[in-house]
């Protein structure tokens, strides 16, 4: 915590990020700043470039120009797996899990990736058994997202909402400093949506993470976000607290008038 007036380095920052695809200019000079502990919601109509921004932030694609800074260090060209090791976690708009593996095996892969420096003991090593601490972490994570009863089910047989939960469990065991969630409640029933919002809020406080998410559902946004950024045709047109953004006349005109949500 710093006193008022002392400038602190944002946890994650995008500076004048440009990303083009052959036929479209997707991101045009996008600036973004996320302070430690924030929950930032990036909102905007379909095709605004939210997912593309997430890809640039997480390293799935690199920006054409501009830079991405993590704790003030330039990570613009750092490959995604190194960013993950540095503290990034990410979920996908359409949940991606290892479909032929059981839910527990999915989480185990994540735990072992995070525990790289914690091999099992020599006897266990020969038998190839996962370390006991790793198995405990798997159970804990599945429990945390409410999937304990489904731990042996192959991931491809899980419901849409459960896949999203499984993905969250996989991200959580990495103990990320910053978690990027692309539409965490897309396609969920209102009940599922409510429980997901509660879950995200709970794990955020428990693990003290910083969260960046995109969302179409304004209810979810105003429940979770401490800050909101509005992306429109690849341009960041407004940023601020939920209340500020809600009152922003430009946002009201462009976004809320488009019928994409309600405030």
């Amino acid at each position: 915590m710093s006193g008022a007036g002392t400038p602190t380095v944002p946890l994650l920052e995008a500076r004048r990020v440009v990303k083009d695809y052959p036929s479209v200019k997707v991101l045009k000079d996008v600036d973004l700043s996320v302070a430690e502990g924030d929950t930032l919601a990036v909102i905007g109509p379909n095709g605004a470039g939210k997912t593309t921004l997430f890809k640039v932030l997480s390293g799935e694609v690199f920006a054409d120009s501009g830079s991405v800074l993590f704790r003030g260090a330039d990570v613009t060209r750092m490959p995604e797996w190194k960013r993950v090791r540095a503290g990034f976690g990410r979920s996908f708009q359409v949940a991606r899990v290892f479909k032929d593996l059981s839910a527990a095996a999915n989480v185990l892969v994540a735990v072992e990736a995070a525990f790289r420096n914690m091999p099992p003991g020599p006897r266990k090593l020969l038998a190839c058994d996962p370390a006991r601490a790793a198995l405990e972490r798997v159970d804990e994570a599945l429990d945390e997202v409410g999937l304990s009863a489904r731990s042996r089910v192959e991931a491809k047989l899980l419901s849409h909402g459960d896949k999203k939960r499984l993905e969250l469990a996989m991200s959580l065991v990495l103990r990320p400093t910053i978690l990027l969630l692309d539409e965490p409640t897309a396609g969920m029933s209102p009940a599922d949506r409510k429980s997901s919002v509660d879950l995200i809020a709970a794990v955020k406080t428990r693990h003290g993470m910083t969260v960046v998410l995109t969302e179409h559902d304004m209810g979810v946004v105003f429940d979770l976000a401490s800050h909101v950024a509005v992306l429109h045709h690849g341009e960041m047109i407004a940023t601020g607290s939920p209340a500020e953004v809600r009152e922003n006349p430009l946002v009201r005109k462009i976004y809320l008038g488009s019928g994409a949500g309600h405030a």
Partner: peptide, 14 residues
């Protein structure tokens, strides 16, 4: 095995 299933996903586990 994770890489065989989905390399991109595996990369996002570090």
């Amino acid at each position: 095995r994770a890489i065989q299933q989905d390399p991109e996903r595996a990369a996002f586990l570090g």
